[in-house]
Design a protein around this nucleic acid. Structure first.
Length: 913
RNA sequence: GCGGAUAUGGUGUAAUUGGUAGCCACGUCAGACUUAGGAUCUGAUGCCGAGAGGCGUGGGGGUUCGAGUCCCUUUAUCCGCACCA
């Protein structure tokens, strides 16, 4: 009986569905384990062979945990709202609701073919009203809360109002956009509009007039993580800075907790580092500089208060709030022109011209509080309005940007730290002795910094301050395909929709295209009485892992019972591209819900594994220029050729199928070839997998040709999970061959299933238990590629062994990787009823590994070494004699039977007991 | 510029974590069987050399009895941040 993977896979996929094999529920008698994949955007292109890698890895782990008798939650859903889905709809001229539905159906059929263990009863779609009700609900909660720094958590906005009524801002320490001070009387005197304006300064979801990333190509604003190098991540359209009134989430309120929480997570160091950089914490001093002949004080932020004796000028950002006040009449025209110029420069230009020095003197002077010298105040766009206070104290001797600026404008440069040569360049290092610096002269920089913090505070010049690079997330999009805001307006005051009225459903419209002006599509809907922007893509994906726990609950996002049991995600598998987007927002969202007492864990994703990207491997043919003749790669240098991508599906092991090539496209119909060794060998290169490079491999095709089990095992056999690597269909035969061999082990010579009940030999048991140990260790370490190797070694060693005692545990062991074949063999060849996944993971028994090596202490040449055993220039026999005569070794070996002493000449000693 | 990662045969990779580098596959070569096939099985396969032997983990240095692994330095590639004070 041949290994008919098609029949087996269809049979078991149907049976799993019929029996509800992967359905899970809260079961307090068993420990839970939650394995989550980052749910996909159902794009129009469908899955290519790279997409399922992470799903396969998490599926292996889920099945393994289940075999270890955990109650495993392993759900799947669709991130269906947002730009990608909408862009696809616009491109194809169909309604996003229709394309989304179609794309989901296609994804589902592709996923089903691979044989995943998802509990599809728990599927969520972010575009379902029943789902986005809870996205809107969370938004309302954020609207109704502020972040209290004293309590270090989110608190109801009513508490803040009560405090304002009682004592104004006195004693209030809350996260806000701009610091405010007012009394209870002043609060009482405010009208409703003014009060709401004040509250928006504190709400965790708030509306503000701020500089935003405006993308005309997409017709919407974007969050910082959706912009890269001045271009939109989706579509690559230019992005400009524009002042607009937008909804934002006060993510910055959680900056410190987001940073600290990282230490508790089992994430890769590189991913944690990306998040740390994104949050960008820096400790420094917030200080006030007096402005000469003015009541104004200039507030700055610096991480190097030690260099204050070297401050020779100040710089403010073009958008600085006090700039016009600082500007003298003589300089007014020049400054105004500079501001105008800055506005015109796009984000891209600013990035491109990073090192170009520009700026204008404001006409005012500040006073250096430590030297009492008058120093000029400049405006320049190298100072950013959005970071710190939008103003800096410039220390040209020790900051390369200040240095360039000082050189350009001929300003004084005073060195205050020893080291470097400031006639050539600034000395930026944070080490060396202070010079020219009054009371800190002679101190090291590391000592001087804390001394200056103290001195600044003692003199009342300012205080120590922690700053973050992280910005509040822009939360509105001028697009159609997203969650509507549960907000309506009266006299431009925002009011929340009552919770009982949720969800506010997205209206069906015929025209959903964005507009150039930024007027959202919903503004065209007659009778639409709510906010016309919609929420961004990350809104729906921020709490989906909670919804899987209790997907149909219409009373709560997740019930207390379900959340108490499933808690948070034990293993999260997905791409690293979400490091600064989804993975920050989700953590923020979860921490907020945690503060409210809605969820029981502070962090959503305990362990996270980033699968590497699977790239394409393109093939090329070489056309001799001006002809229809193609030359094999080894001979191409003898001709003047042109490289042409050729479909990888008509190439096998880099050998071109000539007939298939002639039939591929009309222009190749009469192609002629210059062969080498009778073959046409193609060139190859690693590139992104994309249609235009003809290197896309569809998983459906692989499943058709080799079966899902082969696809699953081959994907992970390609290399380490976390590493990026190219897909190469060559080589898949090795894995397929392995599965066929495994299948044949259960058969007799006539080809019928027959397993022997004969007892296994010690050698067979040794192989089996070595494999159990290796494979379970490898799964725990996500080293799936080496686990597959271990299976292959196992079969090589077992030869034709067909004993039940060996095959039965092997079948369970392999079931996580190749579930279909395991199920079939489990029931048909081994005669079990029910699923192999109701069995238990085979237990490793070290007794079967007869030979064990141990380290032991030994003295050689008078030196006692405990770590490893060393023999210097001795023959094996001499070492053996010496080792056995060694009192330390003797003591260590006491009572242990010595089987063998292994000596690698002159090098190693191992004792086998 | 700052931060992170990677570098091993023709190819993908492995290495008990400092102990005989190249496991397992692909490919290639040779052989067996054969209904001639993209089936199955067996063997060989890092490089140089006829051989003994020598050389070999991007380059250079170091620690060590011993380094793919640790340290310093350098190069290349990829990723993240980027005028962040």
């Amino acid at each position: 009986m041949e290994y008919n993977f098609k029949e087996i896979e269809n049979k078991w996929q149907a049976l799993w569905q019929e029996r509800g094999t992967y359905k899970v529920d809260v079961d307090n008698s068993r420990p839970k384990f939650y394995v989550l994949d980052m749910f996909p955007y159902p794009s129009g292109a469908g899955l290519h062979v790279g997409h399922p890698l992470g799903y396969i890895a998490s599926d292996i782990y889920s099945r393994y945990k289940r075999l270890c008798s955990y109650n495993v939650l392993h759900p799947m859903g669709y991130d269906a709202f947002g730009l990608p889905a909408e862009q696809y709809a616009i491109q194809t001229g169909q309604h996003p609701a229709v394309t989304t539905e179609n794309n989901i159906a296609r994804y589902r059929s592709q996923l089903d073919k691979i044989g995943f263990s998802y509990d599809w009863d728990r599927e969520v779609r972010t575009c379902d009203p029943g789902y986005y009700k809870w996205t809107q609900w969370a938004f309302l909660k954020m609207f109704g809360h502020y972040y209290d720094r004293t309590e270090d958590k989110a608190m109801p906005i009513e508490n803040l109002i009560a405090r304002f009524e009682k004592s104004g801002t006195e004693g209030v320490d809350a996260a806000c956009t701009t610091e405010m001070t007012f009394t209870a009387e002043e609060w009482a005197a405010m009208d409703e509009a003014r009060r709401e304006e004040v509250l928006q300064n504190y709400r965790l979801a708030f509306r503000a007039d701020t500089m935003v990333n405006w993308c005309a190509g997409l017709g919407t604003v974007l969050a910082n993580d959706e912009v890269k190098d001045g271009l939109s991540v989706r579509g690559g359209f230019p992005v400009e800075q524009k002042r607009m009134k937008q909804w934002l989430l006060r993510v910055t309120a959680y900056a410190e907790r987001l940073l600290k929480g990282l230490d508790t997570l089992e994430w890769s160091d590189s991913l944690k580092e990306i998040q740390r950089n994104w949050i960008g914490q820096s400790t420094g001093a917030q200080m006030f500089f007096d402005v000469a002949d003015s009541p104004l004080k200039l507030e700055i932020f610096t991480t190097r208060p030690d260099t204050i004796f070297g401050v020779t000028f100040m710089v403010v950002a073009p958008e600085h709030k006090d700039l016009m006040t600082l500007t003298s009449d003589e300089q007014r025209a020049a400054v105004e022109e500079y501001i105008e110029q800055t506005k015109k420069r796009s984000e891209r230009e600013r990035i491109a011209e990073t090192r170009r020095v520009s700026g204008v003197f404001t006409g005012s002077y500040a006073v250096n509080p430590f030297t009492d010298k008058k120093i000029p105040i400049y405006v320049s766009d190298y100072v950013l309005a959005g970071y710190g206070t939008g103003a800096i104290m410039a220390v040209p001797a020790h900051d390369s940007r200040d240095y360039a600026f000082a050189k350009h404008f001929g300003l004084e440069i005073i060195p205050v730290v020893e080291g470097g040569d400031i006639s050539v360049e600034s000395y930026d290092a944070k080490s060396g002795n202070m010079i020219n610096s009054g009371f800190i002269t002679g101190k090291d920089v590391k000592e001087a910094i804390p001394m200056m913090f103290d001195e600044v505070e003692r003199r009342g010049l300012g205080h120590k301050q922690v700053n973050y690079r992280l910005r509040d997330a822009i939360f509105s999009r001028q697009r159609y395909w997203g969650e509507p805001f549960p907000i309506y307006y009266k006299n431009d005051i925002a009011y929340p929709v009552d919770e009982s009225k949720l969800p506010v459903e997205l209206p069906a419209v015929a025209n959903f295209t964005p507009t150039e002006s930024g007027e959202p599509p919903l503004a065209r809907v007659e009778g639409w009485e709510y906010e016309t922007s919609t929420m961004p893509g990350f809104a729906g994906s921020s709490a989906y892992y909670l919804r899987y726990m209790d997907p149909t609950n219409d009373q709560a996002l997740v019930s207390r019972e379900a959340n108490d049991y499933w808690r948070n995600v034990d293993l999260y598998v997905g791409g690293i591209e979400h490091a600064t987007g989804h993975l920050i927002y989700s953590r923020f969202w979860n921490k907020f819900l945690f503060d409210l007492g809605c969820v029981c864990e502070d962090e959503p994703f305990k362990k996270l594994v980033n699968q590497g990207m699977i790239q394409g491997r393109s093939n090329f043919v070489y056309r001799i220029k001006g002809t229809n003749k193609y030359v094999s790669v080894g001979l191409k240098d003898q001709y003047d050729t042109q490289e042409i991508h050729v479909d990888v599906n008509i190439v096998k092991n880099d050998v071109l199928d000539l007939d298939a090539f002639r039939g591929w496209m009309p222009e190749f119909k009469d192609a002629e070839f210059v062969l080498e060794d009778g073959k046409y060998i193609c060139g190859w290169a690693i590139e992104k997998m994309s249609k235009s490079m003809y290197n896309v491999v569809n998983p459906d095709y692989i499943v058709e040709q080799y079966g899902a089990d082969t696809l699953r095992m081959y994907e992970i056999f390609l290399g380490p999970l976390e590493q990026s690597k190219p897909w190469d269909t060559n080589g898949i035969d090795g894995v397929h061959k392995f599965l066929r061999r495994f299948w044949r082990m259960f058969q007799d010579k006539e080809g019928g299933f027959a397993v022997s009940n004969e007892a296994a030999t010690p050698a067979e048991l040794k192989t089996l238990h070595k494999t159990i140990k290796k494979v379970t260790d490898d799964i725990e370490n996500f080293s799936f590629n080496t686990a597959v190797s271990a299976f292959m070694i196992c079969l090589n060693e077992l030869g034709g062994c067909n004993k039940r005692e060996v095959l039965e545990p092997l079948t369970v062991l392999i079931a996580s990787f190749a579930p279909h074949i395991a199920e079939e063999l489990w029931s048909e060849a081994l005669g079990h009823e029910g699923s192999v996944f109701d069995a238990a993971m085979p237990k490793f028994n070290p007794d079967h590994l007869v030979e064990n090596s141990f380290e032991y202490p030994v003295s050689v040449n008078g030196k006692l070494r405990f770590k490893k055993q060393i023999a210097l220039g001795l023959s094996p026999k001499e070492v053996e004699a010496e080792v056995l005569a060694d009192p330390a070794a003797e003591k260590w070996l006491e009572g242990k039977p010595v089987r063998k002493v292994i000596v690698v000449p002159g090098k190693i000693v191992n004792i086998v007991i």
